[in-house]
Design a binder for these strands. Structure first.
Lengths: 103, 103
DNA sequence: GTGAATTATTGCAAATATACGATATTTTCG
DNA sequence: CGAAAATATCGTATATTTGCAATAATTCAC
């Protein structure tokens, strides 16, 4: 009986929780910040600057992909990653809708 | 060998990931939104509107407390919870520092 | 084709997170 | 004091996350 009962919550809350989850690991924050500095990075470029093995980085990239926060383009033999700004705006919008601190 | 290697990342990334983690469950989003509607809620008030058992709600409140997103005040026999706006602003600040989409 | 380069996937072990019944704790009220 | 009310904690079952070696898959250069 230990399960995330997503059906008990609103779609919007589940969506926002998904973005938050993607951001809940410092490696993924670091990856996103790297991606924010330039338009395109290969997976290998990212591996080079991250303190983790290639499969681990690849896995983190996958999670960011799955929630849509990053896009990718296959340019054999590389895969080029970049931020998906639209999704960042979407996440921001949900944040503001719920918790704007309106300074 | 499966551990979060927080030492490999910057303090600020670990801090932000902590806030994101707290927001990564829809129940906690829902709780925070409830708290945002009024100045004070007892634990029981929150349990009443949440689709989960009292110990589960209490546990989620604890996690929100631990990252500082909510404050509490003991008013026997109740415990009164409220948002900690300062922490929300802090989380927002870290977000903007890293990923402002500056529309 | 063979081998090198790049990335994703698999499989597994360990750590964390989730849910909640049972119980402990604290305080109030009669 | 004894019972009720409110909340937190414990214990436990289950699920999810994390990290990485090993390996698969894809493509290029020769």
């Amino acid at each position: 009986m230990a399960y995330k009962r997503q059906d008990d919550f609103s779609k919007s809350d589940v969506e926002f929780a998904g973005y938050a989850r993607a951001l809940s690991h410092p490696a993924r924050i670091a990856i996103l910040r790297v991606l924010s500095t330039r338009d395109s990075f290969s997976c290998g470029d990212i591996v080079k600057v991250m303190p983790m093995a290639q499969p681990t980085v690849s896995q983190h990239l996958k999670e960011l992909r799955l929630v849509g926060l990053i896009k990718y383009e296959i340019k054999p033999p590389r895969v080029i990653y970049s931020l998906n700004v639209k999704k960042f705006q979407r996440a921001e919008k949900l944040w503001l809708k719920n918790f704007a601190t309106e300074k």
